[in-house]
Design a protein around this nucleic acid. Structure first.
Length: 345
DNA sequence: CAAATGCCTG
DNA sequence: CAGGCATTTG
């Protein structure tokens, strides 16, 4: 499923701009809305389901619910009113995200819902709030640059802070908890978007399950507020993991054949195998996780499966891999409960 | 027809 | 890894 976000970099045609469908006409279900092409988003202020937040499927370092309080509590490196300090890091991505958000929700859109942006964007800033969205959306060509400026002068400052500060805010479990005690808002620690830590965790989970059901994902990411987009993103992650996995398998299997390996018995996967090292590098870069033996077994089976198929020239069939996938998907094992508690892996 | 998959691109 | 698009599925 690709309930994914609407194409980001769409240039909105000046034509279809104005007619804002009445609320009644708007689709009501979340997915219905999401499947709507851009036009709807432009009239955005009209009820965007509160879940419709992570339109941006980028992995973002999401502050723990309430950035300002977190920052204050943890480091308080800056006064409350962040003077946007230098964009000394490449920020095109962030800028695009903001623009994208603006395009979709308009200047009044709920920025708080944007994974990158804190809820408390300075809305008092006159030049951002009072700007009639219509004029901008009606003439996208002209206004795009304006928007960039506005975004830069208002919201971006906050974004920048998040982007730069958070990584430095390395908290231990204890810190997090004591912090949570003082801050009820974040005590839940619910994430609106997937963080790099979630990605890391997902990769480790891959050592156990290559085909996690959406239910499994839900139970193992309790600190994530699930919705279609998040679910899709997670599933997409595993899809990407599998892609890499199978590509490696095929590569090594073919190499073995080229190298003159004749029988499957010679195809093994151990912790010293180049194949394993490649995989481990990909899913467990820090190498701080004990890869379960079962994974080695599954990997070996997969490798042999590829070896056999290729040896028998099955790979002439366009969908020859499906047979292998079918075998491998049955080899999933349960993910240890430890993964459920998350937070500090 | 829409949601889900798969492939492959950047 | 996320986007996009073609294809499949119900």
């Amino acid at each position: 499923m690709h309930t994914g976000p609407i194409p980001a970099h769409v240039s909105i045609g000046p034509e279809k701009k104005t007619q804002i469908p009445s609320v009644q006409e708007l689709p009501h279900t979340e997915d219905a809305i999401k499947s709507r092409p851009l036009e709807y988003y432009e009239s955005a202020e009209v009820q965007i389901p509160e879940d419709q937040t992570e339109a941006l499927s980028l992995v973002v370092r999401k502050p723990l619910s309430h950035p300002s309080s977190v920052n204050q509590a943890v480091k308080r490196p800056f006064p409350l009113h962040q003077p946007p300090f230098q964009f000394n890091y490449s920020s095109p991505l962030h800028e695009n995200q903001i623009l994208e958000h603006l395009l979709k929700y308009g200047p009044h859109g709920n920025f708080g819902s944007l994974p990158c942006l804190p809820p408390a964007v300075d809305r008092s800033s006159p030049d951002s709030v009072d700007l009639p969205w219509d004029t901008m959306s009606v003439r996208p060509k002209v206004s795009s640059t304006q928007m960039a400026h506005h975004a830069r002068s208002t919201a971006l400052g906050q974004v920048t802070m998040d982007g730069l500060c958070l990584p430095h805010v390395k908290m231990e479990c204890g810190d997090l908890q004591s912090l949570a005690e003082r801050n009820p808002y974040m005590s839940l620690n619910i994430q609106e978007g997937l963080t790099p830590n979630h990605l890391k965790k997902a990769k480790l989970m891959f050592f156990y399950t290559r085909y996690p059901s959406s239910n499994v994902l839900k139970t193992f990411f309790p600190d994530v507020k699930f919705n279609r987009c998040i679910t899709s993103q997670l599933i997409k992650w595993f899809s990407n993991f599998r892609e890499f996995y199978y590509i490696q398998m095929e590569k090594f299997a073919r190499q073995a054949i080229v190298d003159g390996v004749n029988n499957v018995e010679d195809m093994s996967v151990t912790r010293d195998s180049e194949l394993f090292r490649a995989l481990n590098m990909h899913y467990n870069k820090a190498n701080d996780f004990q890869v379960p033996d079962r994974f080695l077994e599954v990997a070996e089976i997969t490798l042999q499966e590829f070896f056999n198929a290729i040896s028998l020239a099955k790979d002439t069939d366009p969908s020859w891999k499906k047979a292998i996938y079918k075998v491998i998907c049955k080899l999933d094992s349960d993910v240890p409960d430890e993964f459920k508690s998350s937070t500090c892996l």
